[in-house]
Amino acid sequence: MMKVVWQGVFPAVTTKFTDDDKLDLKMFETNIQAQLAAGVNGIILGGTLGEAGSLMVDEKDELVSATVAMVSGKVPVIMNVAEQTTKAAISAVEKAQKNGASGLMLLPPMRYKADDHETVTFYKTIAKSTDLPIMVYNNPVDYKIEVTLDMFEQLAECDNIQSVKESTRDISNITRMINRFGGRFKVLTGVDTLGLESLFMGADGWVAGLVCAFPRETVAIYKLQKAGRHEEALKIYRWFLPLLELDITSKLVQNIKLAEVATGIGSENVRAPRLNLSGAERKHVLQVIETGIKNRPELPDYLNL
């Protein structure tokens, strides 16, 4: 098991499917190798972008063990856990660990809108069930439960709750976390359209979406910003923003998979009930992608910064 350092760029990768709706591990590996070559710091499986809600349990198992083999110790593999019950979450954590995951991204309970006390208890119970490091996924916009600063105060008792994927959309929350907890929790931004802004405010990393199609550009922005080359980072980010906006809609999976096709590192297949984009919607997304690729910036030698 690799040690997880919660900083840098962590792609929330898409799950690839064949035309007959099986896991497409060949195309998946093509994408993973592109991520590694671009210099990402970890791989996150089974998030929203990974179509976790549509995956069977045995597929999740296969995905974790296959990814661990693909990265062969270069970066940690993080499994997202999004379950309705504490019992199911503990079971998912056990399986992830058995299959070689080095860390977890953990959502609050799904479906049931737990109150603050229930949510804290949920996180603590799962943290106590494992020695894997945990990143709290704080996304009240999509999942209706906010993990507040007072709740983080209680979660600080669990040593293996180490970081937060900050997706509240409130950019000030990064400063609040740092002011209150110093470096106790690593803060990673989880919203593509606030990526660079969050890094400027002191975020340690970026759990990214469009990185799936544009790994080099995403890592370049991160590395340039951390090296104090703000103007260069900003220039690439301004080019990137129309593409990043494809991440903040309910069709983000379809959008990003189309972008992966355009950059040669993915396929369009999604799993029902999702359907491929069609008509005017598809035309618009392809136009955004085409414009982005046409104006793709020259990148400096960011890996050696």
Rank of each mutant, 00 (worst) to 15 (best):
D142C: 09
K3E: 14
V57W: 11
K257S: 06
V64N: 01
K257A: 04
L305R: 02
L286K: 12
S91C: 05
D142W: 11
T121W: 05
K226T: 12
N295Q: 11
E245T: 08
V253K: 06
L252S: 11
I90N: 10
T30K: 15
F185L: 08
S267P: 00
D116Q: 14
E146V: 05
Y237Q: 15
D150K: 12
F200P: 00
E290I: 03
V285R: 06
L194E: 10
A89S: 08
A127V: 09
V261E: 10
W206E: 06
L194F: 12
L286C: 14
Q97S: 10
W239N: 04
Q35I: 00
M1E: 10
V207F: 10
I44W: 00
V64T: 10
M135P: 08
M70F: 08
A259D: 07
P297F: 04
H117I: 13
Q254T: 08
T189V: 09
E29M: 00
A96K: 05
V68Y: 09
C158H: 01
F28C: 02
S72W: 04
I78S: 03
L224T: 09
N80G: 15
K22I: 02
Q162V: 13
L224C: 06
M27Q: 14
A208D: 00
Y112P: 04
K3G: 08
Y143S: 10
Y112M: 14
V13A: 12
A34H: 15
G39T: 07
L241T: 13
